[in-house]
Design a protein around this nucleic acid. Sequence first.
RNA 1: GUCCGCGUAGCUCAGCUGGAUAGAGCAAUGCCCUUCUAAGGCAAAGGCCGCAGGUUCAAAUCCUGCCGCGGACACCA
Length: 590
Amino acid sequence: MTIKDQIKSILEKAVEATLKNNGERTARARTSEECGSATSERSELTIEYPSDLSHGDYAANIAMKLGKIMQKNPREIAEQIVKNIPKNTLIEKVEIAGPGFINFFISEKALKSEMAKILKEKAKYGKSNEGKKKTVIVEYSSPNIAKPLGVHHLLSTIIGQTLNNILGAVGYKTISINHIGDWGTQFGKLIYAYKKWGKKEVLEKAPINEMLKLYVKFHDEAEKDTKLEDLARKEFKDFEQGDKENRKLWEWFVKESLKDINKTYKKLSGIKFDFTLGESFYEDKMDDVLAEGKKKKIFVEGEEGSYIAKFDDENMSPMVIQKKDGATLYSTRDMTTLKYRIGRWKPEKILYVVDMAQNMYFKQLFETAKRFPWYKNEGFHVSFGRMRMEDMQMSTRKGNIILLDSVLEEAIKRAKKIIEEKSPNLKNKDAVAELVGIGSVKYNILSQNRSTDIVFDWDKMLSLEGNSAPYMQYTYARARSILRKAKSAKKEGKTAENKGEIAEKTSQLLRAIPKFKEQLINSARDYKPNLLSQYLYELAQKFNSFYNSVPVLTAKDPKDRLFRLKLTQSVSQILQNGLALLGVAVVEEM
RNA sequence: GUCCGCGUAGCUCAGCUGGAUAGAGCAAUGCCCUUCUAAGGCAAAGGCCGCAGGUUCAAAUCCUGCCGCGGACACCA
């Protein structure tokens, strides 16, 4: 249980007691609905972090809410509530402030015991059982293969992997799935293009490059000749219906693509899937869903013999589930996949980490699924903003693509340059450059609210300043450096300590500790990694501030020294654990 | 046209289950390495939170309308 939860539960009891007392005295209000609404308002009791430190560690606005319902002065109610809070070791003091805020100050003892927990649990600190072992499937990355990964694939891959990590940390049983796009008309296009313009030797030499070239060439040509799209569709249909030559080509393309994509995942590091089940996996399972849907009249005949799902909402266009030529589409495979996952894993939720251009599509998909008896609203679209370039859309079709590999390479290169500048004597420069470079790319994405669009910009993407991975890693390295030295040297304090400043900086840092678990839970609840990254950044800022004005190794009093060392260790542990969830590795020196 | 998302400091963005004086980074100004990593810290500066209404004790946050940007809207995924 987090400290916030404890405060909440203490407050809940106090509010209940207050309401009871009032109910007895003001019998009038009891009969009315007001009492009922007061109760429901109470259940919405929220605890927040005050923006100003002088307002304590946690604050509640419940008295103001009740004040309105009970027609009483909020401050009076607050006073009554506070009276009903029993003495306990968690809370140092409670204050009533402003129009009726109840501010809680956490006792130092409670904070120190939280610190002790960190030192004991180490890498496990932060884990909770919010999820109660319930199963959540997280689908992410899911690239369309036969083309290399572009920068835009970072979003789903990084956000999805991090959500998977975070959900796991708060006690969900997660199943991560890479739903590879290895099926569909795109392969018809590729097969057509290969047959027409491709050369075996060239493709064998540089498979991915050549596939991308063929893909782009197809779209160039298709603009001049509209028949090409139909021909590609035919190739796909033939393939789907058993054409041997096309099947062989497909297998070849898929094999080479996967090899290449896995290389990139490896470079990104920390990208792990419990299952890589491409669309092709559902090839023999689609008939079943199609038949079921047709039988139940969920799928009805549309134009020219296609099958569609219709919606009551006029603004939602129908979803095509089977093409007029009888071939399947992404929707067919997604519906099949949905049924398969529900049947196999019985998840509480299935998260689709996919960009928001597909908002409408997922709405259609889930809306249709609701009509099947096996669907219990498991699907959830974790949408995120799109990545685009300054002046044009990223489009693989047109070849406007920035390769993910090249971004990672550049990131490492830039990190290396700065290392040469700032720490020319560092031993393992290349290893550090890699961790810093890759980390900064990931952190950059995770520190942003996922619904915000991202305009790709080299400098921004690879920023090594401010709220960035290197800042976090640097903070960690500083902390670790202190801890290393603590073992050997025992220096004497030389200068006078500024007591006031020290107390303030120490207290601020100490008080930031319990929020880690709390923000982790918030992050999981809203599927927002940036809540976690923002917390870690704030913690790092507080540590750096502490670092600058509070001597640790040279503390005058040995007791202070010990406490500050423990605090430093606690903070470094949180940074390590938190960054690990974000997929950012820490470094001991940089 | 309809629907979805966004509009916050010069720039890039946090904050949005309503709450106290709207926060960071970059850029620009000044200061701090004879104490633990200056990839750092401190100070000051920078805001009609797109516009106009509404709800509320309280609105950047909720509702309505408008403007601007992005996206989606039947056989691509």
